[in-house]
Design a protein around this nucleic acid. Structure first.
Lengths: 245, 245
DNA sequence: TTGACATAGTAAACGGCGTTCACTCAAATG
DNA sequence: CATTTGAGTGAACGCCGTTTACTATGTCAA
């Protein structure tokens, strides 16, 4: 690996300038504002030049989506590392970090967690690959979740009902994250869809008819969901929301 | 109210032909395939003619979204009316009807429940109006839900915690659907976001990493959620999923 | 019946978009 | 120094929403 030549330096600089421009357009005008011509215009270039770096606008958007997944994951990991060793507290802060990122970056959240945009479709289609950015984000949540459920009574339907209804359909989860007891797998999926539903409804503006401060509902849901995990240990205080802003 | 004149008949026919064309384009190519020029082309017209019926493409899309809300609501109402008087059974079939419609009409579901598309934004912004199609859909679920909770023990956090966290932020819900006890309001919102999260993740392709048959997870969630409502009445059999297809 | 008016449609144009193609010019390579 | 590679340009094609001016045609009152 020798030192990068001049052309290589210029190329990577231009590449990140393209990505930055795309991100800026995404933030200010939503996904439909991201156009090759606008990116190039902001850079003082012409649109066809971008084809030296991306084969199409869709590919550019797909690359952007991958970066956003990683950014969100790092945010969530930082929240986990910034709280104590208690998995419940870790999950609490991780969920808050996810919501905070989503609310603070609605266009970015929409791109990776909303309707599949043309460029992101194939990207999302292969998300049962463990190396897929989306799968890696899920894994960050799964680890403390499994630890939390260890020794807790899970508020699930009876195991035989789970096995009968769900037993044969969890192969993708096992492929991407390893085998899990069915109660834990179901509880995780349930919690994940609840988290998604709440955050997505807020970001997409589908909660305005119900609450004027979605964060209150979010916090209540978090508490409610965590409360269900330790019904047999009354002496165990629930982590009270730490530093907020 | 006299008989419609010839021009009026022609006008309403053209109007519904425009809407049908927009719907067809939405189904076959997603929202970005809906263009005035394509609609007009399919009708053997030119694009500017559509401006005699809609002030812009966005308005046309907003009108389409309103129709879709009503269509989904009628579907859900039919499911309710087709099941017995038991509110739990009604809700079960209504949730199934919602998912069935969403999975069967992914582009339509995406339009009204996904990221706000430009034309649908202002449309969604005023959904705390009780006459808004979205609010009317919610009301259809709320009625049997309230009946179900009557006399059931709700699996919520303590009422004082709810009041403290959520009490001051439910004004929009009270405006659009009338005042509710806070436990019922919270439980309804929680159930609604769970339903939304599950269906949206399936339709948007965000569950592929976990399950190969999202309906199994959906049914499990429904059962699990309904089970929580009647923990004190063991003699009461749970409705077993009726006709499916 | 005739004339005035409202309505529905057209064609042309403007600016924006993704993408392709032929071309130029500078950097890297031998 | 000659050659090849790569980055970038300009023109073009066919889409798109929208506006404008204009033409028929249905409607309705005088």
């Amino acid at each position: 690996m020798t030192a990068p030549t001049r052309r290589e330096r210029l190329r990577t600089a231009t590449l990140s300038e393209i990505k930055d421009g795309a991100r800026r357009l995404l933030v200010t005008g939503g996904i439909e504002a991201v156009s090759l011509r606008a990116i190039a215009r902001d850079m003082g270039m012409t649109a066809p030049a971008i084809y030296r770096y991306f084969p199409s606008l869709e590919a550019l958007v797909a690359g952007l989506a991958g970066d956003l997944y990683d950014e969100l994951r790092q945010e969530v990991e930082a929240a986990r590392d910034g709280s104590g060793p208690d998995p419940a507290g870790q999950l609490l802060e991780m969920c808050r970090a996810l919501r905070r990122w989503a609310v603070g970056h609605p266009a970015e959240f929409t791109l990776i967690f909303g309707n599949p945009v043309p460029g992101v479709i194939e990207f999302a289609d292969q998300c049962d690959n463990p190396d897929h950015p989306g799968a890696r984000l899920g894994a960050v949540f799964l680890t403390p979740f499994v630890e939390l459920t260890r020794g807790s009574r899970l508020p699930t339907p009876p195991a035989e009902l789970l096995q009968e209804r769900l037993g044969g359909h969890l192969a993708p989860l096992a492929t991407s994250h390893g085998p899990l007891p069915i109660e834990i797998a179901y509880t995780f999926l349930s919690a994940w869809t609840r988290l998604y539903g709440l955050v997505a409804m807020e970001v997409f503006g589908h909660l305005g008819w119900a609450v004027d401060e979605p964060e209150a509902l979010f916090e209540t849901e978090l508490i409610s969901q965590l409360l269900q995990f330790r019904p047999a240990e009354p002496g165990d205080a629930l982590p009270e929301g730490g530093a907020r802003h």
